[in-house]
Simulated scan of single mutants.
Amino acid sequence: MSTNEFYLLSILAEEMNMRKAAERLFVSQPALSQRLQNIEKQWGTKLFLRTQKGLILTPSGELVIRFANNVLDQEEKVKEQIQTLESKVHGTLKIACASIVGQNWLPKVLKTFVNRYPHAKISLMTGWSSEILKSLYDDEVHIGILRGSADWKGHKLHLFEDTLYLVDKEIQHVEDVLKTDRPFIQFKSDSNYYQEIQDWWHRQFQTTPKRTIVVDQIETCKQMTFNGIGYAILPAITLNESAKDMYKIPLKGDHDQRLKRDTWLLGYESAFELKQVQAFVEVVNDFIANQPHIF
Score class of each variant (00 low, 15 high):
Lys153His: 13
Gly154Ser: 09
Gln223Leu: 09
Gln204Phe: 00
Glu86Asp: 13
Leu72Trp: 01
Lys179Tyr: 07
Gly61Tyr: 03
Ala236Asn: 12
Glu175Val: 07
Glu282His: 11
Asn17Val: 08
Ile122Gly: 02
Lys121Pro: 00
His90Ser: 12
Leu57Ile: 05
Met18Val: 12
Val141Asn: 09
Ser28Val: 04
Ile249Glu: 10
Lys252Glu: 14
Gly253Trp: 06
Gln223Asn: 14
Trp43Glu: 14
Val141Trp: 05
Gln257Val: 12
Leu265Asn: 08
Gln42Asn: 07
Leu55Gln: 11
Ile100Val: 14
Glu14Phe: 01
Lys20Asn: 14
Ile143Val: 15
Thr208Ala: 11
Phe205Gly: 08
Tyr193Cys: 02
Ile39Asp: 02
Asn104Val: 01
Arg116Asn: 12
Phe280Trp: 10
Leu274Asn: 11
Gly230Trp: 03
Glu23Phe: 05
Trp128Gly: 12
Glu131Gly: 13
Tyr247Arg: 12
Leu12Ser: 04
Ile294Val: 09
Leu124Tyr: 05
Leu159Pro: 11
Leu133Pro: 00
Lys188Thr: 15
Phe272Gly: 00
Leu265Ala: 04
Leu57His: 04
Asp286Arg: 12
Lys252Ala: 10
Pro235Arg: 04
Leu8Gln: 04
Gln276Ala: 04
Val78Tyr: 04
Leu159Thr: 14
Gly148Pro: 06
Asp168Gly: 10
Met16Pro: 11
Gly127Pro: 02
Lys121Met: 05
Tyr137Asp: 13
Pro118Gln: 07
Ala150Tyr: 03
Glu175His: 11
Leu12Arg: 06
Asn70His: 06
Tyr194Arg: 13
Glu170Met: 03
Val101His: 00
Pro59Ile: 03
Glu23Asn: 13
His202Ala: 10
Asp168Phe: 00
Thr126Trp: 00
Trp264Tyr: 09
Lys260Ala: 09
Phe184Asp: 06
Ile82Tyr: 02
Lys134Cys: 03
Ser60Asn: 15
His293Gln: 15
Glu273Leu: 07
